[in-house]
Every structure is written in structure tokens, then in C-alpha cells.
């Protein structure tokens, strides 16, 4: 990715797309585990685990960007 592309301002859609998707996935996980046992539980915790996995991935990923990022 080029630097100018990184500097462009994000729209609200850009900013909230991933958090909103993670929110929907979390909510689905919370509810699905509640309505059934067995497979439902497995789907439930797996979905609720997605935000955890995404957070871990971003935390452990090395910061490869160079130079100062515009604040």
C-alpha cells in the first residue's frame, strides 16, 4: 500500500465496518449458545471467540509500517 492511500481520511463506514461485524458475530454467539446445547454451544463460543482471535492477531502482528504515521 502506498503512503498517500494510508493518509486519506476514513469514512464512518470504513471505521465502523469491522467493529460492527464483530458486534454482530458476538451477539449471534451469545444468543446461539443460549438456545441450544451441543452444536449450538460450539457455534456460540466459536463465534464469540472471533473478536478475541482478531484482537490477538492485531496485538501480536509486528508494526511493519515505516516512518511516523500522521496522527
Amino acid at each position: 500500500m502506498t503512503q498517500p492511500a494510508k493518509r486519506r481520511l476514513r469514512t464512518l463506514k470504513d471505521i465502523f465496518l469491522i467493529p460492527a461485524l464483530l458486534g454482530v458475530v458476538s451477539a449471534a454467539g451469545l444468543v446461539i449458545a443460549l438456545v441450544g446445547d451441543g452444536l449450538y454451544d460450539a457455534v456460540g463460543w466459536a463465534l464469540l471467540g472471533v473478536p478475541c482471535a482478531i484482537a490477538l492477531w492485531h496485538l501480536l502482528r509486528p508494526d511493519t509500517r515505516t516512518g511516523r504515521n500522521a496522527r
Binding site: 493518509r7 476514513r10 471505521i15 465502523f16 469491522i18 467493529p19 492485531h58 511516523r68 504515521n69
Partner: peptide, 26 residues
């Protein structure tokens, strides 16, 4: 969260910047 993330991709953690910025990203 919106004004804070205007210039950043989701999940960016600026580990090379000051401690304050690193913790803000976290």
C-alpha cells in the same frame, strides 16, 4: 472511536510511537 480512527486502519497498534499512542491504540 470515530475521530480517533480517521487516519488509521482497524486494529492498528503503533508500537513504534510513544507509550501514550501505543496505549491509545490498544
Amino acid at each position: 472511536y470515530a475521530p480517533s480512527m480517521r487516519k488509521l486502519d482497524f486494529g492498528t497498534v503503533r508500537t513504534k510511537r510513544t507509550r501514550l499512542i501505543r496505549w491509545l491504540d490498544l
